[in-house]
């Protein structure tokens, strides 16, 4: 739906990112198209979150190019949103947190409250609209973070391990919300190290290891026939790994 005049596709050309002299992201090239939900999969410390922050514009690449199908920076920023692993809530009500996001996005004052309530309803938080956001449970705060992002009607929604610190019940609730957002046409780009979650929510997988994009494949193909030894080992749960001199990988 958004493909013809949206901000996608997003193209990464030889993107590198270093910090403290250490390469975190190493020559990543790929393209994200509108439609299928993309899972950035990899072990802890593989570079998933950094790659996502580079895509979202929170970090600038050390070298390489990140190109969206949208030259206007302001419009580009407004057409994407991100939910972090640990939701940061402003010290105000759940409703006011969503309204704040709309205010920053310059949504007309008269429309803000209605849009905010709709967003809260989409994540099942209408009853808690007037509760202080910071006293909500971890799962509720994460749903509120999703509502805050969703209220902006983003074309692309980045999710950085949104269920990493949640119990199974809260995880299930979050996944249901993500599925609903996906079904509505929003491009979901989610980082996770959870294989089950990748299977449940993903259409395609970008497998990251040590900052390198090792594999990019449809989710079915990735899990049935991983093309790389690293991916195969990760799927089998063979961790940790040792690095060979020739940059191949093998399980201990």
């Amino acid at each position: 739906m958004h493909a013809s005049r949206g901000i996608l596709p997003l193209a990464l050309h030889d993107v590198c990112f270093s910090a403290g002299g250490q390469a975190i992201i190493d020559r990543v090239s790929t393209e994200l198209a509108a439609g299928p939900s993309t899972i950035i999969l990899g072990a802890n410390g593989a570079g998933k979150s950094v790659l996502m922050r580079l895509m979202h514009g929170l970090l600038q690449p050390t070298s390489g190019e990140i190109a969206w199908n949208e030259p206007d920076a302001e419009r580009l920023r407004r057409r994407q949103a991100m939910v972090f692993q640990r939701p940061i809530m402003l010290r105000r009500s759940a409703l006011a947190n969503v309204i704040y996001a709309l205010e920053v996005a310059r949504v007309a004052r008269a429309e803000r409250e209605q849009i905010a309530f709709e967003a809260l309803e989409s994540v099942g938080l209408t009853q808690l609209a007037h509760r202080p956001a910071r006293v909500l449970s971890g799962g509720e705060q994460q749903r509120l973070a999703l509502a805050r992002a969703w209220a902006l009607h983003p074309e692309v929604l980045f999710l950085d391990e949104p269920t990493a610190s949640l119990d199974p019940t809260a995880t299930r609730e979050i996944e249901m919300v993500i599925r609903a957002f996906d079904a509505s046409g929003t491009k979901i780009v989610m980082a996770t190290h959870n294989l089950g979650q990748a299977r449940r929510l993903g259409d395609e997988v970008l497998f990251i290891n040590q900052g390198r994009l090792v594999e990019c494949a449809p989710v079915e193909t990735f899990f049935k026939q991983p093309a790389s030894a690293e991916a195969a080992a990760f799927i089998k749960g063979e961790l940790p790994w040792n690095r060979c001199a020739d940059r191949c990988w093998r399980p201990c």
């Binding site: 922050r53 979202h56 929170l58 920023r77 972090f84 940061i88 920053v104 996005a105 805050r148």
Partner: peptide, 9 residues
């Protein structure tokens, strides 16, 4: 707050 606020614009 930085990342969250920057993400929201």
């Amino acid at each position: 707050y930085e990342e969250q606020l920057r993400s929201l614009g």
